[in-house]
Computed example of a mutant assay.
Amino acid sequence: MASCANCAAPLPANSQVCRYCGVRNDMDLLGRQAVRVADAGVKRQCPNCEIGLQTVALSREGTPDIERCSECFGLFFDPGELEVLLEDSVAPVADFNLPLLQNINRERYQADRPVKYLKCPVCQVLMNRMLYGYQSGVVVNRCKGHGVWLDNGQISHLLEWKKAGGQLLDRKKAVERQARGRTETANTEFRSNYAAPTNQAGGEFEVLETIAEVVFKLFE
């Protein structure tokens, strides 16, 4: 679980506001990265607060700059940036811990959270809501052309998910889906190749049967 940078108390699920000291924590990246504002421009707009997003730079080399709202601390990632950040911020794991993943999701699940469709910070078109990865429990807003929006606290959830082996489990399920798809395709091709001759043979049998009935009537 993420901790408050001010008093070290555990932060509530899906929030960066400390319940003990009241400090609003910035992005939690397991304490491994410092954050500085690289650009306070207003080209991209927060879909929640409708103010310009800041561009923030992370201290680790190779980590992409990302957009952040200074009010709600939501984050916007260009295509591929979220995956780079997850890879850079969490050490590789050898296996997945399914009970831990389930506990993380139970703790962070918000049954009363309203479903809200947000506009893309770039094109202002409504984004699609989708689950990020198998057993992640994180529903993100994605614009196919411009990137992914994460609400306050969701980056912490995804970091915990990856640390518990969620990304490994997601890749395992993807391989299984591909294998099922290949099997279904092969079965479909098999049926299409062998169904036609069977029907054709049945049709020829019906024709022969009709001819036999005509010949039989001629000799009655």
Rank of each mutant, 00 (worst) to 15 (best):
R182H: 07
S156H: 07
L101W: 00
Y194G: 03
E67P: 06
E61R: 06
M27H: 09
L75H: 01
S89R: 11
P10I: 00
K119Q: 10
D88F: 11
E50R: 15
Q154S: 07
E220D: 03
K217E: 05
K144P: 05
A201C: 05
K163W: 01
G62I: 04
A2I: 00
R177T: 02
A94H: 10
A8R: 08
G153L: 12
K217P: 06
A212T: 09
P197M: 05
S15I: 06
G74S: 12
N105W: 10
K172L: 11
P121D: 04
A196R: 15
G137T: 02
P12G: 05
V122E: 14
C49V: 04
F205Q: 13
R171S: 13
Y20H: 11
A38P: 00
V148E: 08
F76R: 03
R32Y: 11
H146E: 11
L86P: 13
V42L: 02
E220W: 02
L85Q: 05
S156R: 03
D65H: 06
V84L: 08
P99T: 00
G31A: 14
C123T: 08
N97F: 00
Q16A: 08
Y194N: 12
V148R: 07
R68V: 05
N141T: 01
E81Y: 05
L86K: 09
L86T: 11
D39F: 07
I104C: 00
M130I: 14
L58T: 09
R60H: 13
A34M: 14
G22D: 09
S192G: 09
F190L: 09
C49H: 04
F96W: 13
T183N: 09
Q124E: 14
M130C: 15
D88M: 13
F73V: 10
E206H: 03
F77A: 12
V215R: 14
A91D: 10
L150Y: 10
R142E: 15
M127W: 03
V93K: 08
C4M: 01
R113V: 10
W149F: 08
G145F: 12
L85F: 05
Y20V: 07
A57R: 14
M27C: 15
V37Y: 06
E204Y: 04
G137V: 03
L101K: 02
R171D: 11
L150H: 04
Y20S: 11
V207S: 03
A195G: 10
D170M: 10
A9K: 04
R68D: 11
R129E: 12
D88V: 14
M127I: 04
Q154G: 11
N25G: 15
K116I: 10
P12L: 02
C69M: 06
G147I: 07
L159M: 11
E61G: 01
V138K: 05
P99Y: 01
C120Y: 06
N97Y: 00
Q33D: 08
K116M: 04
V93T: 15
E83C: 12
T198A: 06
K162I: 02
D95N: 14
Y109D: 14
V207K: 07
C18T: 09
T183R: 14
G202D: 06
G147E: 07
P92T: 05
E204P: 04
